[in-house]
Nucleic acid binder design. Structure first.
Lengths: 354, 354
DNA sequence: ATATTTCTGATGTACGTAAATCAGAAATTT
DNA sequence: AAATTTCTGATTTACGTACATCAGAAATAT
């Protein structure tokens, strides 16, 4: 069996209370005694039983996730993952609340952050909007001793503890690389459909994509960005017009949401030959892949991001270090052939990595 | 706070003992009373605190992982993941042992399984070799009430409870699809490098690859399989000879291990133009991607597989159902641009700013 | 109505840790 | 040497559940 605090006490020849003081960094232990206890811990290979410890302290960590409202299917999936994690994590003495804010609305986000601070939560996770007032609110949270992570989209000039999301520059480069390889020698320009240049993740993806297309050579033209506000209808209109204006168009990189409109426009124009690369496995992109309208989808696993955010928030709330490598979110590539089956109706399905 | 057994007892107007009987399916409760208790459980939304429950029962699950020995870097990575999970899972009252067997050696594997049975473990995970004596040993394990999962490579005609690995047919198809797209209209045959046609996962990958290449049209020739036994030196020799015999070779699909040899042969021949698709992110494939010798790597996340195997074994040992969709392992695609950075020896990231 | 079986309540211990209290020992200061 | 401070030990309660025991109540059979 694993050694317990009792074993340490016996081995070090001290009482349980002293072991407890050493283990929990409480004062009242002479340096010599502390060293003896620590040696016993080392020699016995003692590891704290977190379950028992949590049980004993009966502490709960109230966390808040601030997520954009609206129809964006990725955000809705993200929220579903938060709620799923919330039920699971009640075992881990974490209480999770979800708060909605309008998308791309910095003042509303700042207000939501301040509300969470007032509630006295232990940690906040938020999909950041890149604006000074948001950075200021994050500063206030941190000043109040509240852990803060940005989710999906970062905000560099802020005091956030950690960013839970993918390297969007690398994501853009990946999209560019796939586009270049899939198109090969085929001539024609490439269009880019984005949500808004006001969010950092979209800007970074575009930057990475453009950089790689330039490096790839061949002088392929990348057209001006179409900003669809992540809304399917706008995306449909923009892409439809673009297909008319550029009949020779060879590829489209959709780096935001609104992909239902993108697929609709392509199908309406009968342009299944256009090479399309999009982001995030959602209902529209899944259908697009299956029907061959979309060629590849880059994905960030929302479940991973949420669970990582929870781990980081709890660690920060406890003042523990975070192992960055463990929290890195991968950029998944999906094509028709390796597309995982959709979740079942219970919504519980997901390859849990915990 | 979450409701506890005490709350249920109060709500249902019964004693703690009765609640316990209902919760744990013990006899001695009238149907009427049981219904009352169950209603209270329902109404209060009671969920058993697994941590406290495990603590109380103090049960441990001894599990054994049987893994091929040798230099195969994927297997070594798999073993590392098992050991990592072992340290973490001691919290979950699981004790994990690792046993080595020679690769592709059915009698040795059967013997290892029988040894584990004799030890009275609660569950066994093994990288299967597709042979009748192995299936028989699995049958004996199951007959002894021991949970059994196959890991990475399956063995269909056996009594194993579950297979923890990817859909290798789909993996082969994915490789085929990428190969076809990357090559485009470029002429030339495609070679296949495998470990051994005696293991099921390699056979299935080949089948999927061939099927998709046929469907893709263009009449591209797929050469006879080169069997490298997952050994780098053999692979190097086979590929080197193949490059001489087929100067027009356009692509190579490496569906097993020994990729260090593959990369060496390609570099020696100066054939960076050959489109190469390999399996598993390991040191050689990572280097191959970074240097541009390998174009894409399909990966199965060994960590996911191991954790899934542990979850399944524990569930089976407890007689609980497994949600198959939750345990599905994805086929990851990596190219140079979305390759995750390797971890350094401390487990922390090399470049983790963001 | 009595005997018997079946159900239920009350109570206690255990799991491994956290945290508090209080008494006593050791070290330090006066 | 006495007074004080600082350290340490012993002990207890608590967390939420599992599990065992025993007595008593209720239901059923005789």
């Amino acid at each position: 069996m694993r050694p317990t605090v009792h074993d340490i006490a016996a081995k070090a020849g001290v009482s349980l209370a002293t072991v407890d003081r050493v283990l929990n960094g409480r004062p009242g232990v002479r340096a010599v005694t502390r060293a003896r206890v620590e040696e016993a811990i080392e020699r016995l290979g003692y590891v704290r039983d977190v379950a028992a410890a949590n049980l004993a302290k009966g502490r709960v960590y109230p966390l808040v996730f601030i997520i954009p409202e609206g129809e964006n299917p990725f955000m809705r999936g993200l929220e579903a993952e938060v709620r799923l994690a919330a039920t699971r994590s009640s075992f881990e003495r974490t209480r999770i609340a979800v708060v909605h804010v309008p998308p791309f609305d910095a003042p509303a986000l700042a207000k939501a952050i301040d509300a969470a601070i007032a509630e006295g939560v232990a940690g906040i996770a938020a999909v950041a909007v890149d604006a000074p007032e948001v950075a200021a609110a994050i500063g206030r949270a941190r000043a109040a001793g509240i852990a803060f992570v940005t989710l999906v989209s970062d905000l560099a000039a802020s005091a956030r503890d950690h960013f839970c999301g993918v390297d969007n520059l690398a994501a853009g480069r990946t999209a560019g690389s796939l586009m270049a390889r899939f198109l090969g020698a085929r001539p024609g320009a490439v269009a880019v459909l984005a949500g808004s240049m006001l969010v950092r993740d979209h800007r970074e993806r575009l930057e990475g994509f453009r950089a790689l297309m330039a490096e790839a050579g061949g002088g392929r033209q990348v057209l001006d960005v179409l900003e669809g506000q992540d809304e399917p209808e706008r995306a449909r209109a923009l892409v439809g017009a673009c297909l008319v204006a550029h009949p020779e168009l060879a590829g489209i990189y959709s780096l935001g949401a609104g992909n239902a409109g993108l697929v609709a426009a392509l199908e309406a124009a009968g342009r299944g030959d256009v090479c399309v690369i999009a982001h995030e496995i959602t209902e529209p992109t899944r259908l697009g892949l299956e029907r061959g309208v979309i060629d590849a989808v880059l994905n960030q696993d929302a479940g991973h991001e949420v669970r990582s955010a929870i781990r980081v928030l709890r660690a920060k709330a406890d003042g523990l270090p975070v192992i960055a490598a463990q929290e890195r979110i991968r950029i998944d590539i999906f094509i028709k052939e390796n597309l995982p089956q959709p979740l079942d109706e219970t919504g519980t399905a997901r390859a849990a990595e915990a």
